[in-house]
Simulated scan of single mutants.
Amino acid sequence: MAGERAVAMQPAVAPPISTTTPTQTMENQKKNRIQVSNTKKPLFFYVNLAKRYIQQHNEVELSALGMAITTVVTIAEILKNNGLATEKKVLTSTVGMKDENKGRFIQKAKIEIVLEKSEKFDSVMNTATPAAARAPAPAPAPEVAAKDKE
């Protein structure tokens, strides 16, 4: 067999073993992400949701396309100006997608803003919560309690 070359075979290397599946990894990354729409929910729905995510995960990722970008920026500014969050990262890009009306391929602007919990988050949240919501309900007056027993 003239002209044949011997090729050294490399031993197969097993990929590193991971205890998380790709689906689990994606779910973990998305737990603190809010995809904002400027037509589906009111602005303060997203502000309150972002507060909750910051409280639970210490950071929140706000994401939007096209006309909703201004809404994301507004949400981020409200949280920063109220002392609840600090800006960690801002990413801008374009995303290709099919236009539903014209059926052609278009580019849409995209923004992602990552905010992290500020040092004074807890104290700001505690002072923002009305005293009635923080305090336990007062005991009923004795005369009311006596009437209830009758």
Rank of each mutant, 00 (worst) to 15 (best):
P11K: 07
Q35Y: 03
L43W: 06
K120D: 14
Y53A: 06
K147G: 03
F105W: 14
A85I: 13
M26E: 15
P140T: 04
N82S: 14
V36Y: 04
F44Q: 03
T86L: 14
N28S: 09
I106D: 02
E112M: 02
K80T: 13
F121A: 07
A14G: 07
I111C: 14
K147P: 04
I17G: 01
R52A: 10
H57Q: 12
R33N: 13
E61P: 00
K89E: 15
M1V: 01
S93G: 12
I17T: 12
E77S: 10
P11F: 12
D122R: 03
K89N: 15
N48S: 02
L79P: 01
R33I: 04
A14H: 06
Y53P: 00
E143A: 09
T21G: 09
N48R: 08
I54M: 09
M67L: 10
I69N: 15
A139P: 11
R5E: 15
A76I: 10
R104M: 10
E119A: 14
K51L: 07
P22C: 13
K98Q: 14
Y53K: 12
E119N: 02
M1C: 04
T25I: 14
I34E: 04
S37K: 00
K88M: 06
K149P: 00
I111L: 13
G83V: 04
R104A: 11
S18P: 05
Q107V: 05
M125L: 11
T127A: 02
T71S: 10
I113D: 08
L84H: 14
V73K: 06
M1T: 00
Q29M: 12
T74G: 02
Q10E: 12
E119P: 01
L79S: 05
K110D: 06
K80C: 06
A14W: 03
P15M: 13
A85S: 14
T127W: 06
M1A: 04
